[in-house]
Design a protein around this nucleic acid. Sequence first.
DNA 1: TTGGCAAGTTGTTTAAGGGTGACCATAATA
DNA 2: TATTATGGTCACCCTTAAACAACTTGCCAA
Lengths: 334, 334
Amino acid sequence: MVTLKQLAKELNVSISTVSKALNNSEEIGEDTIKRVKELAELYNYKPNRVALSLKQNKTKTIGVIIPDILNHFLAKVLFGIEREATLHGYNIITCISNETLDKEKEALQLLANGSVDGFILSVAQETQIKNEVNHFKKAISQGLPIVMFDRVAHDVLCDKVIVDDFDAVYNAAKVLLLEGRKKIGFISSIDDLSVGKLRERGYNKAILESNNQVPLVLRISKMEDSQLKIKAFLESNHIDGVIAADSASGVIAINTAISMGLNVPKDVSVIGFSSKFISNHSIPRLTSIRQHAKDIGANAAQLLIKRLQNKNASDSDVSTRIIKTSLIKNGSTL
Amino acid sequence: MVTLKQLAKELNVSISTVSKALNNSEEIGEDTIKRVKELAELYNYKPNRVALSLKQNKTKTIGVIIPDILNHFLAKVLFGIEREATLHGYNIITCISNETLDKEKEALQLLANGSVDGFILSVAQETQIKNEVNHFKKAISQGLPIVMFDRVAHDVLCDKVIVDDFDAVYNAAKVLLLEGRKKIGFISSIDDLSVGKLRERGYNKAILESNNQVPLVLRISKMEDSQLKIKAFLESNHIDGVIAADSASGVIAINTAISMGLNVPKDVSVIGFSSKFISNHSIPRLTSIRQHAKDIGANAAQLLIKRLQNKNASDSDVSTRIIKTSLIKNGSTL
DNA sequence: TTGGCAAGTTGTTTAAGGGTGACCATAATA
DNA sequence: TATTATGGTCACCCTTAAACAACTTGCCAA
C-alpha cells in the first residue's frame, strides 16, 4: 500500500501538502494538486482506513451480532443491514452469538475496544431466557449505541426495530376462523423467544375470542424430529387449521398433512411465518406472514447511522420502529 | 474508552510504563505492575484495536465476500469461517457481492485500504460468466492474500477450498443407475457457475457410461417458477430419477412428484445437494449430497490465517483443499 | 523609480490520535 | 566504581488540520 509519505518523497513536497492536495484544499496550488493527484492515481493511493479511524476516532464500521446465521429470517435481515450500511459507507463486522449469552457478551466486549462505532443485534435465546441485559447497558454507557431488532430486550433503552408479531398472528388466526376452521393449532419451535411469546399470545387471544375453541399448542425443541412431532399433533387433535410461528414448521405441516392423505387447504389450512424462498418448498405453497426482513435490517441500519452522525443526540431519546407484516395468500389457505 | 494516557496520569507514571506493565515487561517492578493492573481492571481497560492495527500494520480482520447470504450453503460456510476466525482472534468484515462483478470489485477495493489482512471469497456469478480475474490478482499483488472457496477462479494463483462436485454427482448418478432408473434427469439453477458445470459434467459422464440413456437436463433461471418448470420436466420426459444441482430443486422435485400422484421413491427417486435443514422440507426427506459447508468455511479460514501468520510464505506456493462430500441416504431414494 | 509594507498564495511544521519498544537515565546496591 | 533494577524518553505507524513560514504580488508614498 502506498502512503502519503511515499508520495511526498517522490514529489519532493511535504506529507501534508499531499494530504491537502488530495482533499482539494484551497491552500494548495492548482498545478500541485494536479501533480499530486496524478501520482496518487498512478499508484492507486487510498487513504489508510486504520489511520483515519485513529485520527477521527470513528471507524465507520458497525458491529452486527446475530444469534444464528442459518436462520433464513436473520440472514435476510443481515442482508438488509449490509446493503444499507454499504450505501452509507459503513462496513459491518459480523459476529454470531450462536444463541448463547457467553458469545454475545464476548462479541460485545471484543468489539467495544474501538473496532466499531455501534451495534446492531438481535438478542440471543439464552440471553432472553436468563433475561440478562447488563452487557448491553455497559456498551451503551461506553458510548456505543445499540439498535436491537426482532428479539429485543425491553429493559434496555435503545433504538429498536420490531415486527407486529401479536397482531400478525391474531389476524392470521382470524383468517382461519373466518374459513370456518374448528380446531386451529399453533406450532412453535421458538416459544422461549420474545417474538415467539408474542405470537403465541396473538393466537391465544383470537382463539379465546372465538366461541368454542381452546388453544392447541405444539412446542418443538430444536433437537426433536419436527416431522414426527407435527404428525402426532395433527393426528391426535384432528387439526384443521395450523399457524406456524417459525419458518420451517409451516412447510413441514403442509407436507405432513399431505403425506397423511389430507388435502391442503380443503382439510387443513396452514399459515406460517416464512419467506418467499421457503414457502416454495411445499405444494401448495405456504400462505405466509412476511416480515420484510430486509426492511427490518435497513431500518436498523438507518437508525444506528442516524445516531452515529448526530453527535448531540441524547441516549435516552430512543425510537422504536414497527415494521408491519403482510399476509401473502398462497395455496395452503382457502 | 480508557486510554493508557489516562491510566498513566492517574498513576503518575509514564504512558509506556503502563503499557509495559500490562504486557508483563521485565523492566517494570512487581508492585508497579500490580498497581497498574489493578487500575486497568477497575477501568476495564482494553487496548485500542485501531491504534494497535496501525502500529503493527495488521488488523486481525478478514474480509469475507459472499455472493449471496440467502443461499443456505453460503451462509453455512460463513458460519464456519466466523467460528474459525473467532477461535484465532480474528474478526470478519462481511460484504455481499449480490452475484455482481461491480460489487465484488468494489468490496475488494474498499477493503484493500488497510481494513483487512486478507480475503476469503466465493466468486460472483457475473464474474464467473465474464471470467474476470484482474481484481483478484490486483489484491494479491498488493499483499492481501485471498482464499477462494466453492466457486473458484482457476486462473488466479491462491489457496482454494473446493468440493468434489464432479465425483459427487457422478457417484450419485451411479446410485440411481444401480436402482435401475431408466430416465434420469438433471435439474440445475446454477448452470452458469463453475460448480454447476462440474456437477453437470459428472452427471453426463455417468449417463453416457450407462448403455442406453441420454442426458435430460433442465436449466432453471432464478426468475422462473421452478415448481412449474419442474413439473413440466418430470411429466414430458417420464422421469424416474432426479439429480438436483442446487439446494432447492431437490425438495421441490419431491413435492412436485407427490402432487402428481407419484410415489417417492418408488416411482421417482431424487438426490439433491442440500443441508439437513432443507432436506427436512419434504416427506420423504431428500437424499442429499452434503457439502460440509461449515468445514469448507473452517478450512478456508485456516488456510488464510496460516498464510497471514507465516510472513515468509511465497505467494506462488498455494494449496487447494478438497472437501469430500458425503451422500446421506434419506427416504427419497430406495 | 524604488523602498516598504500589507495582503495573498502556497507550502511546511507540528501536534494529535493510542500503543509499542528500542534506547536512555537515574538511583540504589554490590 | 560498576552493575542492576526500574522507569522515562522518543520515534514510529498514517493521516489530518491548526498554526506558522516563506515567497510573490500589488500598491502607495517618498
